[in-house]
């Protein structure tokens, strides 16, 4: 597994963060996994890392402080935006809530909570390609 890509789990629900982290670990993604409680925390974390760092983020939409959409806006123009891939993760039943995300080239897909092992396998594949 490529260790240069940082995996970010951005969600305000600690149970969800726990579940997703556990599932990723079961899929073999153990290191470089960072849990963040909202968009602001995520941006600040990314800003603190090396500009050339690549990220693979599971982004919740409804969050306090800075929600998923605000995070995407904040990401634009930042030096690491080009090497960032994002999977939107929402508890919403209908996919249309993430339709506006097509405007952001960093968004590569949408997953409905909770994540499954099949979802994790796809993440593993993506990370392998991104390496």
């Amino acid at each position: 597994m490529n260790q240069k890509v940082k995996v970010l789990l951005i969600d305000d629900d600690p149970v969800v963060l726990f579940l997703h982290k556990t599932l990723l670990k079961k899929a073999g993604i153990i290191t470089n996994v960072h849990t963040l409680n909202n968009g602001r925390d995520a941006i600040e974390f990314m800003d603190s890392c090396e500009p050339e760092t690549a990220y693979y983020a599971l982004l919740d939409i409804n969050m306090p402080v800075m929600n998923g959409w605000e995070f995407l806006e904040a990401l634009q123009g930042r030096p690491y935006s080009e090497q960032t891939s994002i999977l939107l993760v929402s508890s919403a039943a209908e996919g249309r809530v993430v339709m506006p995300a097509v405007a952001y080239r960093q968004v590569i897909g949408y997953l409905s909570k909770p994540l499954t092992m099949e979802n994790c396998d796809r993440i593993v594949t993506d990370l392998a390609e991104k390496a």
Partner: peptide, 22 residues
């Protein structure tokens, strides 16, 4: 979509984890 499914999704994830262990 958002409020109901959030705890539901959590329960689904937790139950799944309970079943599989680890």
């Amino acid at each position: 979509s958002h409020v109901v499914r959030a705890p539901l999704a959590r329960i689904m994830g937790l139950v799944s984890l309970l079943k599989e262990g680890g």
